[in-house]
Design a protein around this nucleic acid. Sequence first.
DNA 1: AAATAACCTTAACCCAGGTTAAGATCCTGC
DNA 2: GCAGGATCTTAACCTGGGTTAAGGTTATTT
Lengths: 194, 194
Amino acid sequence: MTHQALIKHINQFLFQPMRAEEEKAVADRFIRKAYRKRQYVLQAGDLSSRNTFVVEGCFRVFVADPNGKEHNLQFAVENGWIVDMGSLYKEEPSEMNIEALEDSTVLQIERKGLYELYDGFPVFNRYFRILAENAYIASQKRLIRSLGFTAEARYLDFIARYPHLLNRISDAKIASFLGMTPEFLSKLRRNFNK
Amino acid sequence: MTHQALIKHINQFLFQPMRAEEEKAVADRFIRKAYRKRQYVLQAGDLSSRNTFVVEGCFRVFVADPNGKEHNLQFAVENGWIVDMGSLYKEEPSEMNIEALEDSTVLQIERKGLYELYDGFPVFNRYFRILAENAYIASQKRLIRSLGFTAEARYLDFIARYPHLLNRISDAKIASFLGMTPEFLSKLRRNFNK
DNA sequence: AAATAACCTTAACCCAGGTTAAGATCCTGC
DNA sequence: GCAGGATCTTAACCTGGGTTAAGGTTATTT
């Protein structure tokens, strides 16, 4: 069945299987959708009205700063979620862009459907609580590294933490994620080889 | 009653009043505690076993980077929460320090009590979901500013966003929160006066 | 298989913000 | 009420990482 990956992911985070009616509530509200490489899931300025679970493929979330320079905030692969949570919940225009980096398949739920899950089935408040807590913990760790680590330390940390992304995502995009230019990343790598 | 501020805060985020038994569950598990100015709620390396709600006073959350330099991650005043969520939930030694900046009063709950709330009363999964989502949204906004904004833009943004903190927290601590040195903040402020 | 676009590297030069140090002002506890 | 600590400012000098520009390599697309 088409929603298996998501249901499995939810069960893992809950440490117990959902009941049949809860599984059905998921299956009724999440819609499968395909994106081609370079296609946008969300553009800055638009309203984000959906939450998106990655079944297969790879995405990046990025913002443009006041000079128009891009900064990658997050990459998501299989079993990850991509959303501008601020835009989704506060119903404000998105600051973020979300772009497919590969041909990809996702499951999407509308804001309305998400609220139906929260109101009808307590289990989803628990699941998304845990998810938001993990996202917050990860975001704080990133902030700590961006405040106190040198460019070199951030790069080494990235290699150790996300080895599976190294061959899947271009260096320029990783450099942007790490808060440095591709030129500087190239200089760093050259120094390691000596 | 001593838990009123917290109960009111929860009700606000739920958009509806809790039932009596839920209020009681809160009152039974949160313990009032006082901290003196400069006293630590949590030290890096210790295990964080509690979540803390600020009834009155002011705190900072900070980390030390590899060179021993401090970085303020968050300030919390009345109705704010302070916690190293990573340490609390993953039961790992804390990276963070939490220090009272004024004589303060808080309400604290032990990890065990918190899990009892989650398991016994769905409403708390909803409340803490919303809280975690808001924290994540705020943390992402901070990251965006730290990646793409100049020191001056970050300072102006801070003034606009947290005017009430300006007279309550020292410039050096604000500078650290904004990712710059107090000397540089001083230089910025001098330029504005011309 | 050529054309085009995306990607990576190198190198010279540059700058926002850090560092160091010294003096001035404001607490705060005893 | 004053001594020792925080706190804020100024100024000279320094550096990690950015900018610009050019050439080389590797994927896509047709």
